[in-house]
Amino acid sequence: MESVILKTATRLMVGLILIFSFYLLLRGHHEPGGGFAAALVAGTAFALFVIAEGPAKVRTAIRLRPTTIAMLGLATAVAAGSAALLSGQSFLTGMWWGPGEELLIGTPLIFDIGVFLAVLGAILAVLLTLEDN
């Protein structure tokens, strides 16, 4: 689609939407949001990007191949789950590190990032291939 307004607006919007998506991802453990919603928001951003600029530009922008992103997501999720195995607990048991109750880093958060990447990769893969056709 050749539309100057769309293209200009998209440039602004995509960045904003992606930032919102990361915000959703990070706050998901305590507030509404989380990996799924964040991935869908990011997917929408890329859909906008693809419609405005075409799939080739998006591919260069994201650098990694979409299927690679999806696999990376699965690997992250598995890795997050396997962390518990190292300390002798069963697969996917949540592990937490950090000072105090309010500031903790834990494997469930990493798992959520895996979910985000997997779903985003899947959406991107379909979106870009569909547009290629």
Partner: peptide
């Protein structure tokens, strides 16, 4: 350690399902 119960179910309690 999560306040959003739905998200905690997804990424912790029932994370195998999510996987």
């Amino acid at each position: 350690h999560g306040r959003n119960i739905v998200n905690v179910i997804l990424v912790d309690f029932r994370s195998l399902d999510t996987m």
